[in-house]
Nucleic acid binder design. Structure first.
Lengths: 195, 195
DNA sequence: CTTTACAGTTAGCATTTATTAACTTAAAAT
DNA sequence: ATTTTAAGTTAATAAATGCTAACTGTAAAG
C-alpha cells in the first residue's frame, strides 16, 4: 500500500490499533515497535514517553469530534436535523477509530494522571456544552421535552454511541459498528413505545 | 462499619473499587492487598490468580443481572411494567457493583483473553435473549413499535447503562451512577421528543 | 570531503508485577 | 494435649516494563 508514512505516524496508527484490538494491557513500547518492525528503544526517538503517544491519539480524536459538531451546526439545518447530523458525524468518527478513545477515556480518566484527565475532561465538557446548546434550543422551540436535562442528554448521546462499540465487539460482528444510524437516532428521539 | 466481611469478600470489593476509581492499571495484587491491610502474597491464599478475581467480579454481576430479569418476569406485571422493572433491577445491581463490570467489559472484550471474552459473550447473549422475549411480547401486544429490532433494543438497554457509567466516570461524580432511574427509563421508552 | 543530524541498533538499569516457597501463628478438630 | 488447617508473613524469582546510554550507519549540509 502507501508506504509513505513516517515512523512517527506509524507509531500512532500501530498504537491505536493495539488499543482497539488488544486492549490497554498490550499497549507497550515493545508491542508497538514489533508491529512496525523497529525496536522498542526507537520509539523514544519519536516520542518522549508512551504517555505522549496516548495524548496524541486522544487529541486527534478530540479535534475530529469537535470539528464534526461545528460542521453540523454550520449547515444551518433545523434543530432536529442539526442534532441528527451531529450524531451521524460522531458515528462516522467512531467507525473510523473503532471506539479506541472510549476505552482510553475509561482508563485514563481514572489513572490519576492529571495530564490525561485534564485533556479528556476538557473535551467532554466542551462537547457536552456544544451539544447542550442545540438541545436547549430544541427545548425553547418546543421540540424537545422540557423535563430532560440538556447536558445529561448530551452525555447520553456520547455514551450511547460508545456502547454500540461494546455491542459490536461482543457480538463479534464485522463491518460497520452501527448498522443503521438513523434507526438508533430515531429510537433515542422518539423512544421505543408506540405513539 | 460492619467488619464482618471475610477477606475473600474484601478482596472482591477492594478489587472492584480499584477498577472503578483507579483504573485497570492499578488492579494489582499489591494495591488490592494494601487497601485491605494485608500483603500481596496473602491474596493467593484466597484466589489462584488475579484473573480469578476478575472472573468472580464479572460472574457475580452476571448472575445477579440474570436473576433480576427472571425476578421481574415472575412478578406477573404488564409487559411495560416488566420492562421497566428489569431496567430498575439492572440499575440496582450496577449501583451495588459501582459500575466495575461495564468497565471490565470494555477492556476485556478486546483483550484477546478468551476466558473473559467467553464469559462476557455468553452473558450478553443470554441477557439479550431474555430481554428480547419481553420486547417481542410487547410488539405482539401493540405496545412496542414494530420497526425496532428486539435484540438490538435489548443491547440498547445494556448500552444505555454503560453510557451512564461513562458519564459518571468522566464527570468524576460521587454517589449514585444514575441519579434518576425513572427519568432514564422514560427517555428510552418515550424518547426525548415531545409527543 | 568532512561534519552533523537523524533514526535506528544493542545492552542495560531500575522498577514493577505475578506468583511461589518457606516460615509463623492462632484457632479448630481430633 | 496434640495435630491440622487457615491465613497471614517475609523473601525470592522470573519476566515484563519504561526508559536511558552508548554506539552505528546513512544521507543531507557545509
Amino acid at each position: 500500500m502507501l508506504e509513505e508514512l513516517s515512523t512517527r505516524e506509524k507509531i500512532i496508527l500501530a498504537g491505536a490499533e493495539i488499543i482497539i484490538h488488544e486492549g490497554l494491557k498490550r499497549f507497550t513500547a515493545k508491542n508497538i515497535a514489533n508491529k512496525i518492525g523497529i525496536t522498542d528503544a526507537a520509539i523514544y526517538k519519536h516520542f518522549p514517553s508512551l504517555d505522549a503517544i496516548v495524548v496524541e491519539i486522544i487529541n486527534r480524536y478530540i479535534s475530529r469530534c469537535s470539528q464534526s459538531v461545528d460542521r453540523a451546526k454550520e449547515l444551518g439545518l433545523s434543530t432536529e436535523e442539526t442534532l441528527k447530523q451531529v450524531m451521524r458525524e460522531h458515528i462516522k468518527v467512531l467507525e473510523e477509530t473503532k471506539g479506541a478513545v472510549p476505552v482510553l477515556c475509561f482508563e485514563f480518566s481514572r489513572s490519576g494522571n492529571k495530564k490525561f484527565f485534564d485533556i479528556l475532561h476538557k473535551f467532554v465538557e466542551d462537547y457536552k456544552k456544544k451539544l447542550s446548546e442545540v438541545i436547549k434550543k430544541g427545548q425553547e422551540e418546543g421540540l424537545v421535552k422540557e423535563d430532560i436535562d440538556p447536558s445529561e442528554t448530551a452525555m447520553l448521546f456520547v455514551g450511547l454511541i460508545q456502547a454500540k462499540v461494546f455491542a459490536y465487539v461482543m457480538e463479534r460482528r464485522e463491518g460497520p459498528i452501527i448498522k443503521d444510524p438513523d434507526q438508533l437516532i430515531s429510537e433515542l428521539f422518539y423512544g421505543i413505545i408506540k405513539k
